[in-house]
Amino acid sequence: MSVATSAVLTAAPVNLNHPGHYVHWGAIQISVANLVVIALMVVIFVLALLLPFPGSRHHS
């Protein structure tokens, strides 16, 4: 496997070779990466509340 092919295979799906992006909201400053992670956690939290648990309908 050539070095170039290896580099392509191991490259991050998102180009990380630049300074991070940040959002500013008054006194709040947070990187876009951290904001995305927090949003994903909130989505998982809401889904865990709403999605039915397997087998739970069989029990009273």
């Binding site: 939290f45 889904l47 865990a48 509340l49 999605l51 648990f53 087998g55 739970s56 029990h59 009273s60």
Partner: peptide, 11 residues
């Protein structure tokens, strides 16, 4: 307990 049958108790 029966109420544990929820995804929120899995974490």
């Amino acid at each position: 307990p029966v109420y544990v049958a929820s995804w929120i108790y899995v974490f």
